[in-house]
């Protein structure tokens, strides 16, 4: 069975990949790619339901085993079930569901991101204390200069500084970002290849 699973993974991966590169030469590969991708999307959708079920199980267990935190878990389960049931029945365009998103999801998410404004500054301060090597110093100096360059002031942009800094940091960071992106792409390529070659088999528990 494990072999069959592996074969299926490799076959579907290779087919999709062939569709990527050889679709022009072999149109059927393109079609096969779309079919497989469609299946994968369906399965990922189904996986979402299973994932949510897992979420529920975990919190049900929490309610059972950790009375102290059971309230939060209960809130989560209720909110989840309520939203899901209502949403499945009413549909995502329903105004009440929109209300739930607007009143709960967006404010909380935005607030969580807003927390970062303080957290990140604090992290910079700690970084200077914790790891004052050349790279960290350059990192912090760049942050400060970049912020100064984009900072609105009562007198407008700081003369010369904005263009100079933005130009310099733009070039340097562009180069660095390109290198980082290429590196990440390389890593992704090799990781994907390991899966397609059957070396890594996360689906088979290997």
């Amino acid at each position: 069975m494990r072999i069959l699973v592996t074969v299926l993974a490799i076959a579907s991966g290779v087919t999709v990949l062939a569709g990527y590169f050889l679709a022009g030469a072999v149109p059927v590969l393109d079609q096969a790619r779309f079919i497989l991708t469609d299946w994968a999307v369906i399965l990922a959708g189904m996986a979402a339901l299973i994932g949510v079920a897992n979420l529920v199980f975990v919190h049900i267990e929490k309610v059972r085993s950790q009375p102290g935190t059971s309230l939060y878990s209960a809130v989560l389960i209720i909110a989840l079930f309520g939203t899901t049931l209502y949403g499945v029945i009413a549909g995502p365009e329903d105004s009440f569901l929109n209300f739930a998103v607007t009143a709960i999801v967006i404010p909380v998410e935005a607030s969580l991101l807003a927390l970062l404004a303080v957290t990140l500054v604090y992290a910079c301060i700690r970084l200077a204390r914790r790891r004052a090597d050349v790279m960290s110093v350059i990192f912090l100096v760049t942050i400060v200069l970049f912020l100064l360059a984009v900072m609105p002031t009562p007198i407008g942009p700081i003369p010369v500084l904005d263009r100079l800094i933005l130009g310099m940091t733009g070039v340097v960071s562009g180069a660095g970002a390109r290198g980082l992106l290429i590196g990440v792409a390389l890593g992704t390529l090799l990781t994907g290849l390991r899966v397609l070659l059957g070396i890594d088999r996360p689906y088979g528990g290997n």
């Binding site: 404004a117 500054v121 910079c124 301060i125 200077a128 204390r129 400060v144 900072m151 609105p152």
Partner: peptide, 25 residues
């Protein structure tokens, strides 16, 4: 304006915190 103030705060905090950190080290 709030944007500018926030940036200024951050710059100030990072600079002062950085200097403080280096001094502490």
């Amino acid at each position: 304006d709030a944007f500018g103030s926030g940036i200024l705060l951050a710059v100030f905090a990072i600079l002062s915190g950085g200097v403080w950190g280096v001094l502490m080290r």
